[in-house]
């Protein structure tokens, strides 16, 4: 039984390390911001989860540690898409144009910076309106 846990966690750590490196390499290699976002998602989801599961197997049944690791995993699951989305949304309303299609052509489709809707839709927009009214 101990051997099974040992080899299982060895496998989880190896696979997790592979995916963490993959995400970082994609962050370096991919051609523009919007594609790099996807690479960073690999590290945030599968890489982090596999390493955390490996740590859970190595926690020796100490259920306080297991609970903390599960809370970290749950928290990453909730926050990583929110921060990725807010960076992507900020870039989009900030007028950063994506490269699209097989030839990775520059497409001028992002909304213009001076459009009035851009600042309203940013995170914290409600607070800003409140500040304006006060």
């Amino acid at each position: 039984m101990d051997n099974v846990i040992h080899y299982a966690s060895l496998f989880l750590f190896a696979a997790g390390s592979f995916f963490v490196i993959t995400g970082a390499l994609g962050l370096l290699r991919f051609p523009d911001f919007y594609t790099r976002m996807h690479a960073s998602g690999v590290t945030d989801t599968l890489g982090a989860d596999l390493i955390l599961w490996g740590m859970i197997l190595q926690a020796d049944g100490d259920w306080l540690l297991i609970a903390k690791l599960l809370i970290i995993m749950l928290f990453l699951m909730f926050t990583s898409p929110v921060s990725t989305h807010s960076i992507a949304h900020a870039a989009w309303v900030g007028g950063l144009n994506p490269l699209l299609g097989k030839e990775l052509k520059h497409h001028d489709i992002a909304p213009d910076r001076d459009e009035t809707k851009a600042p309203v839709e940013m995170p914290g927009g409600e607070e800003q309106n409140k500040g304006g009214a006060a």
């Binding site: 996807h38 998602g41 898409p81 989305h85 992507a88």
Partner: peptide, 10 residues
């Protein structure tokens, strides 16, 4: 967004 390869932008 959580599924790699697709990100919701707006």
């Amino acid at each position: 967004t959580l599924t790699p390869g697709t990100v919701s932008v707006d």
